[in-house]
Design a protein around this nucleic acid. Structure first.
Length: 550
RNA sequence: GCGCCCAUAGCUCAAUCGGAUAGAGCGACAGCCUUCUAAGCUGUAGGUUUCAGGUUCGAUUCCUGAUGGGCGUACCA
């Protein structure tokens, strides 16, 4: 039985017999090890209600507790009224087996085992390459999708794109202009055109294939060539980054199936929209609650063309109808307001938006040698995500984007990321893994019969470093649960960092392979293997590799 | 102007639904390699958690206001 569930139960029944029915018991892991392994603030929570002194009430709770001798060694009152539980070392030694048995499944939760989740992210339209500005969302979505899977969800990874409309026309014109310029260097380039060099590349491909025969051709061939090139580029970048989407959802399918029209009709029927100046407006000022100055927004322009909001609403309704238990969207802060309008629209049509979780990440500033680096979209040479991955590697890219809470502005230090040294935080973690692999290799040389599945005597693991390492390793499932509860993969990094720290310290003070003490060596090797498993599983969630040598 | 987000060590950031002495990395300083990977370990210095109030046993965390910064505020997405 899990010790935390057990303590929760005995505290609950203790509170029950003290006259508190159905108490919610909160357990915490104290920051300070001298405060025990598990603590509860129950006495402070309930003493006030009863008009009692927290410390005295804590004493009453303890007296009611039925503590067996086996795994809980002590329960004491501390500070303003905490009850601190001390867990026996044998409990941890015993639990070590679970890691070794469950291997790459250790840390997986059953919390959402029969549920489905849809996560949609990246979703850039095929009008250009992915640039560094897309990086944070790309990396975050990858890690969050993994995280959801680790808690049991059956996850659909989805990409929503639009290969119609103004932006694509713009690409078409841009490709055409670059094509013409190959023959007439002074042919004008559209003012709002895509200035990136990749457009020239697309034009060059067309010249190679068709020569100058396309000068009077229908624009469609330019748009299609552009779309194909851009989409290949994006998908290639995602592949290099280790991302595989299951569904590519084309916005135009919503038009084909009449979903756009249907949605407009619904708004009209419910009196949530009206016409003004030739356009159709959504009554967002009424739909959005808790917002003082919300304005109505256009959903169909005077030209008859919908704005992005309308298909976005229809798209989300489609996802809701597909029956997912959880729908995750990831946007940058520049979309911070607009998703509210979309959600309000969906809500207004009577759909349950409580399953939709929108993650907004703040912007990224790239810093090189202490100076901000401009990553302009309009510039001829954009710093693409491919460039970044090539410069610093996929692992470091992934790690740096995910290492901080999405909620705060991220400063991305390219010079630090490039550094292949101990300054780079990602190597600290990977080094621990490589170090363990090296020891396991050596062990097979020294002890010919050694295998990771061997029997061992965990009672030999007695040093302070060994015990604290075990405790940290066994906290992995809690770290996963904590990270998923707020959709914050950086919590996994914080946790894994702690694992690496405890391992390095263990390594420093405890010789693992000792020819003359095989039993102890075997026990320590199993502890190393358990550490390796936890590191590897954590890396899998974050989305970085686990090198066996460095 | 209005809305959303943010403000923690010199720098970049953590901090378990409000918990105990606010922690890491980098940078600075001082140590540790004839022994399994020194991309490591140990120690020192560094804080009025932007400011002013409030809520309570207890506030980095919640509320109000101020200051400073980011992002929005389109018939672009």
């Amino acid at each position: 039985m899990d010790i935390k569930n057990y303590i929760t139960e005995i505290v609950k029944s203790s509170l029950n017999s003290l006259g508190i029915s159905n108490p919610v018991v909160i357990l915490e892991k104290p920051k300070d090890a001298t405060h025990g392994d598990i603590s509860t603030n129950a006495a402070m929570m309930f003493a006030k209600k009863l008009g009692k002194n927290p410390k005295e009430f804590a004493q009453a709770i303890i007296e009611e507790l039925n503590i067996p001798e086996n795994f809980i060694t002590n329960a004491v009152i501390a500070g303003p009224g905490f009850i601190n539980f001390f867990i026996s070392e044998n409990y941890y030694r015993k639990k070590l087996d679970e890691i070794l048995e469950q291997k790459n499944n250790f840390g997986r939760l059953n919390d959402n085992i029969d549920k489905t989740a849809n996560i949609e992210w990246v979703s850039a339209n095929p009008t250009g390459e992915l640039h560094t500005g897309h990086g944070r969302q790309t990396a975050l979505g990858k890690a969050i999708a993994n995280l959801l899977e680790w808690t049991g969800y059956n996850v659909t990874r989805e990409y929503y794109y639009n290969n119609a409309g103004r932006q694509m026309e713009n690409l078409q014109k841009s490709v055409y202009a670059r094509y013409r310029q190959i023959f007439e260097s002074d042919y004008p380039f559209p003012e709002e055109g895509y200035a990136g060099d990749y457009v020239k590349e697309i034009a060059a491909i067309l010249v190679k294939e068709y020569g100058d025969k396309l000068i009077d051709a229908n624009g469609k061939i330019f748009r299609e060539a552009g779309e194909k090139w851009c989409f290949n580029s994006i998908r290639n970048t995602l592949e290099v980054f280790g991302i595989q989407h299951d569904v590519f959802f084309n916005e135009s399918s919503l038009y084909d199936k009449g979903k756009i029209k249907e949605t407009i009709e619904e708004f009209k029927k419910r009196d949530l929209s009206y016409e003004k100046d030739g356009a159709v407006w959504l009554k967002t000022s009424e739909l959005i609650k808790n917002k003082k100055d919300a304005q109505d927004k256009v959903i169909v322009k005077a030209t008859g063309e919908p704005t992005y909001r309308l298909p976005d609403i229809a798209y989300h309704i489609d996802k809701i109808k597909r029956g997912y238990d959880l729908i995750v969207d990831i946007f940058g802060a520049d979309h911070g307001d607009t998703y509210r309008e979309v959600l309000a629209g969906i809500d207004g049509l009577g759909y349950d938006i409580s399953k939709i979780k929108v993650i907004i990440h703040q912007m990224v500033t790239f810093v090189q040698d202490g100076k901000p680096v401009k990553m302009s979209k309009r510039a001829d040479n954009v710093y693409t995500l491919d460039d970044l991955i090539e410069d610093i590697g996929a692992d470091v890219t992934q790690f740096f984007f995910v290492m901080r809470s999405a909620n705060t502005h991220l400063e991305f230090d390219i010079a630090l990321a490039k550094e292949q040294s101990d300054k780079n935080p990602v190597f600290y973690l990977q080094y621990a893994h490589a170090r363990i692999c090296s020891i396991l290799r050596n062990a097979k040389e020294v002890f010919k019969d050694f295998a990771e599945s061997n029997n061992y005597n965990s009672a030999l693991l007695t040093s302070a470093e060994e015990i604290s390492l075990m405790k940290v390793l066994l906290a992995f499932p809690d770290a996963v649960r904590s990270a998923v509860s707020t959709f914050e993969p950086h919590k996994i990094i914080t946790y894994i960092n702690e694992v690496a720290e405890h391992y390095h310290r263990f390594y420093h003070y405890n010789r693992v392979i000792d020819k003359d003490n095989k039993d102890l060596s075997m026990a320590r090797l199993q502890l190393c293997e358990a550490t390796r498993i936890v590191l590897k599983n954590g890396f899998d969630i974050i989305g970085i590799s686990a090198p066996t040598r460095m």
